[in-house]
Amino acid sequence: MIKVTIDGINTEVPEGTTILQAARQIGGEIVPPAMCYYSTLKNSGGKCRACLVRVAAGSAKDPRPMPKLVPSCITMAQDGMVVENITNPQVLETRKGVVEFLLLNHPLDCPICDQAGECDLQNFAYEHGMAKTRYEEERRTFDPIDIGDKIKLHMNRCILCYRCTYVADQLTDNRVHGVINRGDHAEISTYIEKAVDNEFSGNMIDVCPVGALTDKTFRFKQRVWFTKPLDAHRDCPKCSGKVVLWTKGNDVLRVTARKDQYGEVKEFICNECRYDHKDMSHWTVEGPRHIDRGSVISQNHYEKVDLVKLKKDVERQLKFQEGKRLEQTNNSAE
């Protein structure tokens, strides 16, 4: 086990843990945002630069600070490392810049985008972005295309996180889609509009942090915050069969895999579960899906307050404030 300090909070993590994972163990507001990193996909991360943090001390052996901000999702924590995330103004300034860069060519069509309400970029921009853009030029545009009969690709909205290509690479055989072209003209494509039609292709929709890849069977059916999410499962020979049903009344509007609090799917599901069983009677319903309080989807959802979790949250917050106070007194003492 190695000791790491993140924003003044000490924690112990096993060796080979990234800074981001260590921060996630602590939880709360000190967790850096991640747009491209996906813990279940190998080689992901390091691209969006949203999770940049400052390393104030490299390790106990070599306590020099790192010269540049480092991507926390792929930088390994070292014993005695001191990391500054939301306590460092430079990090927050850079993050603001990253939001601005990501939104430059991203259309602000949230009112008609199916991802609205469960969009990582929306949340990220809401937390760190500016109210106004400084960009006066035209955005680059592409036409929406069908990749496969069930998936629609809106390249305009893509932030090139490469997650979907990793899904295709690591979950399925015979990858037919990838990134073509370069720079801000780079696009996710199937090259000659070949259809993506393998068994697990639907997971591309789940890993997409924005509304670039959407489920054609659900498009424009319903705003996500008007639906009722339920945990459910069925016996599936191909996958775990553990899903979330997004329902309205007795209709199943959409089936997705279960995402954790950081929007990551741990158990991917097959296309049969996703598209072919939109009937309540095919599923064993476990109960209502827990949605984070911060999300718009949790509107009008009532849950019993988890006292244990609440106590943990308050304790962490107190620790964080104490760390901040100590840091300030240290700084003024210097």
Binding site: K47, R49, N105, R140, L160, D184, A186
Partner: peptide, 14 residues
């Protein structure tokens, strides 16, 4: 710009 990381991809064009 290769278009992999966002500051360079978007910033150079801007």
């Amino acid at each position: 710009s290769c278009g992999q990381c966002s500051p360079c991809r978007e910033g150079t064009g801007w």
